[in-house]
């Protein structure tokens, strides 16, 4: 399939995608990659409008999440900020979309942007935090689990059970993220669990994170 790159048909493609059916599962058209600043602005505007519809939201959130970490020159800092804002407005749909993007690539810039979106989603609607904790438990990708934890550690509320569970994850990146998060959230329980984990943790990176977390907590 050849994708048109003009700004006009770019918008029409997106509109056609939403009109194709009433079932999100049958949205099959992918948004074309924007090649110019105008196409990029148009993509963001069209998706912003389309995501007002709850039915279309999961599809467009997934489509937009493909552009997290985009390195093309059209994705300026301002447009990347707008991309994150539009995604965050998708609420729970954004959680699945960005974690899927993280699972597909382990690039740090994708994870950083994904985590910024997740933090924004929860700060806009704190009631979504349990959903993010559930996604952590359900995710099979270690990178997605780690991103969930890194997003949670920016929260004022304390999803302690999830963080403690993450401290014993099979993947070192997840344990590393959990140690830093617990150092941030504090509390006697956090300190106790960190000390226990340190006693049996063999990975040097994670051990260092636990020690740093204990320092931040004022422990030893």
């Amino acid at each position: 399939m050849s994708a048109s790159l003009s700004a006009t048909t770019f918008g029409l493609n997106a509109v056609a995608a939403t009109r194709a059916t009433s079932s999100p599962r049958t949205y099959v058209a992918s948004l074309p990659v924007p090649r110019t600043a105008d196409e990029c602005d148009h993509l963001l505007e069209v998706t912003r409008r389309r995501m007002l519809s709850p039915e279309a939201r999961p599809f467009f959130a997934r489509e937009l999440a493909r552009f997290l970490g985009a390195e093309s020159t059209v994705w300026s800092r301002e447009r990347r900020e707008t991309l994150r804002e539009v995604l965050a407005a998708a609420g729970e749909s954004a959680i699945d979309a960005v974690l899927e993007a993280v699972a597909q690539t382990s690039r740090a810039d994708v994870s950083d942007e994904a985590e910024a979106v997740l933090r924004d989603v929860v700060s806009r609607s704190p009631a979504i935090m349990p959903a993010l904790c559930r996604r952590f438990q359900q995710a099979t990708s270690p990178a997605a689990r780690a991103s969930s934890i890194r997003a949670l550690r920016g929260m004022d509320a304390r999803p302690a059970r999830t963080l403690l569970e993450a401290l014993n994850d099979a993947d070192l990146e997840v344990r590393d993220a959990a140690a830093t998060a617990l150092g941030r959230h504090g509390g006697l329980e956090a300190k106790t669990y960190l000390v226990r984990r340190l006693a049996r943790e063999r990975n040097e990176i994670v051990r260092e994170s636990i020690q740093t977390a204990l320092e931040e907590l004022g422990g030893d």
């Binding site: 382990s106 270690p142 990178a143 990146e173």
Partner: peptide, 11 residues
């Protein structure tokens, strides 16, 4: 290479 290692590899 683990995802943690990849995460630390910035191009």
């Amino acid at each position: 290479m683990t995802s943690a290692d990849v995460r630390k590899t910035r191009t």
